[in-house]
Design a protein around this nucleic acid. Structure first.
Lengths: 194, 194
DNA sequence: AAAAATTTTTACCATTTGGTAAATCCACGA
DNA sequence: TCGTGGATTTACCAAATGGTAAAAATTTTT
């Protein structure tokens, strides 16, 4: 069904902008160009739409981290991961904000999936990074907090866009500037000293 | 009036947890132990309560950056700023989330104050940092994005606490670990090479 | 103690919102 | 052409929600 996708796209607009409770079915319906009951023909209810979006998002969201390859060159693997996350913040800002809003409110709907999907992947990749550190291929940093820092800095550009745009204006190559900055920062972070 | 503070504290709980639209006056009233009309005796409406919170928060929020001293030692000034922001995320997580929620939704209510209060301060401190960089006292980094990175990484621990706690568990000295990590990261970032 | 001012409660109200029932429309095969 | 099944709309509804009017209670002032 094509209308399902239309509805999900409209819902993504509305949910990412107003949050779960702030979004109304009427808004979503208007955005989708459909009537409210027609939307409820395709989805059981508001919560199911939201949950569907979050579920689909989960895969996309984890993908860049999945690609982090234990057998690749440590430093460029991490820097490439940073780049992928930053690109994603640029290309999928609505998704980023939807996710941020959910976590901000205590992950009431996606909490279980953080345990079942995110955590195992996170632990696995932390182990990979810890291995690199132990082998002396990168600096001896805390893998968990390194990943947090990558998430925080990259998603910041999508989630806090309203603030960023006030402070730096509408720079056409803001993305490249940010990319360069993060490359520099995490590059230095990973360099083995001495 | 003492009740004003009670109401604002209750509202901070509710708004930070559910967002503006997700919060109801009934919830705030229950949390404050007052009746709904009684709350509307002290505040003109829901929006005014929210706006009052954001206004008061603005000062607190900008304070750590105000303290960044152009005449101090560059590196320790910045590292101390990171520490102050991180401490604030620990001590005032509700405020951090309230602010994050507002920005996430496009700063519909605090937007003007970002221009009038945050931007001038931001520009001023960017100039200070740029001066340090030009004088060779710290590495030649982009001040704007440095500050963004500091905000993002420190506030991450408050705003995404639901995710962090899933991934690292309930570590009693998680704060110190995070502090150490950020010190390391930004310390390396600022080191003048060669 | 009486009057005045402030605070709190009771009883509402209009609107919004998520959701439903049932009628209607529309393609398409028999 | 008629029927059939999916898609869409019309007309609702009950609950929740932000807010108000006015009375009652309480405190303060005279």
């Amino acid at each position: 069904m094509r209308n399902r996708r239309v509805i999900l796209d409209a819902a993504l607009n509305v949910f990412s902008q107003h949050g779960y409770r702030g979004a109304t079915l009427d808004q979503i319906a208007a955005e989708a160009g459909l009537s409210k009951p027609n939307i409820l023909y395709y989805f059981q209810g508001k919560e199911q739409i939201h949950l569907t979006l979050l579920s689909q998002l989960m895969e996309t969201w984890l993908d860049p981290l999945v690609e982090l390859d234990a057998d690749g060159d440590p430093k460029s693997e991490i820097l490439d991961y940073v780049q992928r996350k930053l690109d994603m913040a640029r290309d999928l800002p609505r998704e980023s904000r939807l996710f941020a809003g959910e976590i901000l409110q205590g992950a009431p709907r996606i909490g279980p999936r953080l345990h079942s999907e995110l955590k195992p992947l996170f632990d696995q990749k932390c182990a990979v990074i810890a291995g690199w550190a132990k082998a002396g291929k990168i600096a001896d940093i805390n893998p968990q907090h390194l990943i947090f820092s990558i998430w925080a800095t990259t998603q910041h550009y999508a989630d806090f866009e309203a603030q960023v745009s006030v402070l730096v204006g509408e720079d056409p190559d803001a993305h490249d500037t940010a990319s360069q900055h993060l490359r520099e920062m995490f590059g230095r972070m990973l360099c083995v000293k001495d």
